[in-house]
Design a binder for these strands. Structure first.
Lengths: 326, 326
DNA sequence: TTTCCGAGTGTTTGCGATAACACTGCCGCT
DNA sequence: AGCGGCAGTGTTATCGCAAACACTCGGAAA
């Protein structure tokens, strides 16, 4: 910086100003400095800057499995939004969502002095972890449940599930079976709640939900059993991979979809439109969730207080896996 | 740090030593310092440390679409490996893989003084970008093509494609059609190369490859056309989503898989085993690639020179979408 | 006994930037 | 003419840490 200042014939302070508050420097001086910066290929030293300002311009994201469609898309959305606000994103992925591992991940990020952290933790065991966070660090949760002591951005799972269920009921099905996600997952219980309340609202019988583990395999296994029950004409599966397994199991057992059984999934993964038949499913706008989470975090960093929940509405995408009951 | 030193009755320098080179401090002194660190909840200041050491302990990853299975898994592998080496990972995602956008992404990371960068750029247009990188920054490329001026870690696409093709030929198919990825993708051309050379080795006719765009949709569209050609009994699709589209198109047209047409995919996404029929495909170990890339980068950071290529062998996973020709 | 060595610890300095404050002219007001 | 104010710039102090070098002291070697 000293060199740049020398070349431009000004003091180091002025160089700093040109970079951080250009309007405070007379245009011609500014131009000289900028030219010097160019010529010397000067780049401000990040460490020195954040040492003195106390901020780093880096945000952290803690997540469990960034390989899954949901977390990956959310992360992507966060990164995109962060870029627009001139923040960089660092990641800490976890093996499990325990209180301990969350604390570890946050700690790793914090030791690199991130300005704030977004935790993607759609699991109930994470809530505990969220309660024991350092309170001097701005934190936002994505997809978290009720009663979490930090701001939350999430898709309204219950609403999406209710839409899916009502869609099936509107097609004349007497009730809707549910292939749920594993217990303890916030998303799973939200979807169960929405499904159940939609059935209740119509006075329908509420079957016991079948519990899967998000995998296509679990959908397949449940599907094999369900195929033998002629009562089952409509199934709401809690995600698309399970729907895929379900589709295959039903087909193998000679059931036709949607003629014999209608199926609705959840997520709208890019392939869902090319399942056979194309899957009716609930689209989650993960990018939007990521953006909202980032906004909440920036607010927190900016000193805004309060526990906020930002809910994003999902959207039912009707394709060909659902049809009028016959 | 001063406070910790005071509490432990030592100088600040000793505290620093306890943290960075514990063996140079007498055990009892060390214990006193550690106790003081505990008591005061002291955490070293990252900015100050990297200001004086010149290193940040942060690596950057530049990638285009971290939502896709391949890049997402690679990123995950990199992060896991980085964690083991006490590095943190920052990400910069790109809209497109042009020379300009790559330069921008690298610049964003560099301005936060990352110690090195891994670029996930399976596109030929990226090669140009890789050629114009600042040479004072350690860079490693994942999935890059030949002639790239930086170390590369990648799956051996040609080898995987050849395996897939030989598998189909060994089942008695006279030749194998190929549904390829889009031109300009390194992976796509590698797979074409492997497929072609396997056919050549057996003296088979080499059909013109059909060019898709990785999406299930493009697989579906090509599939609809292919379904009418009775000559086509074996298809090697360049990824799993295209295989999915292909499967559906063939089924819709009344073709049976694998009885009438055998199909092999590429990737082994988690759902592949639950396609209908379960997909024979080539598994890429992205985690391994990520780990190798990280190792290369650490070598570079450590001062090791030379253009290295680390190839990871893919593996053929035989399921039920392939059968003896009838 | 003296000398030397080295393990363990302290002191000083500087990393590169910004914040806070101080200075310099010039302008317009009284 | 004299003063205040303000835009533009410079000076100084400081952020928290580690590198380099200096010091101390006890034990081994001469």
């Amino acid at each position: 910086m000293e060199d740049v200042a020398g070349l431009a014939g000004v003091s180091a302070m002025t160089v700093s100003r040109v970079l951080n508050a250009p309007e405070k420097v007379r245009p011609e001086t500014r131009a000289r400095v900028l030219a010097a910066v160019q010529e010397l290929g000067y780049r401000p030293n990040f460490a020195a800057r954040s040492l003195v300002t106390g901020r780093s311009g880096v945000l952290g994201v803690v997540s469990m499995d960034t390989t899954l469609y949901g977390p990956a898309s959310t992360l992507y959305g966060i990164e995109r939004a962060a870029r627009q606000h001139d923040y960089l994103v660092s990641i800490a992925s976890l093996q499990a969502l325990t209180r301990r591992s969350i604390a570890e991940g946050v700690e790793r990020l914090r030791s690199q002095s991130v300005d704030g952290v977004i935790i993607i933790a759609p699991h109930e065991s994470a809530a505990e972890g969220l309660r024991h966070l350092p309170k001097d660090l701005p934190v936002v949760d994505v997809g978290g449940g009720e009663g979490v002591p930090v701001p939350v951005a999430a898709v309204d799972q219950a609403s999406g599930a209710a839409r899916a269920t009502r869609h099936l009921l509107s097609l004349g099905h007497r009730t809707v079976w549910h292939l749920s996600g594993p217990a303890n997952w916030i998303d799973a219980s939200g979807r169960i709640r929405g499904w159940r309340s939609a059935l209740e609202a119509e006075g329908c019988e509420i079957p016991e939900p079948l519990v899967g583990d998000w995998s296509a395999q679990s959908g397949y296994e449940h599907g094999r059993r369900m195929a033998h029950d002629p009562e089952i004409t409509a199934v709401f599966a809690a995600n698309d991979p399970m729907s895929l397994g379900l589709l295959r199991a039903l087909r193998e057992a000679g059931k036709r979809v949607p003629e014999d059984v209608s199926i609705v999934g959840f997520d709208d993964v890019p392939e869902a439109a090319y399942f056979w038949p194309p899957l009716t499913t609930v689209r989650q706008n993960f990018g939007e969730v990521g953006g909202q989470a980032l906004q909440l975090l920036l607010d927190r960093i900016g000193g805004v207080e309060g526990d906020v929940r930002r809910m994003v509405e999902p959207e039912l995408v009707v394709r060909e896996s659902t049809a009028q009951r016959r």
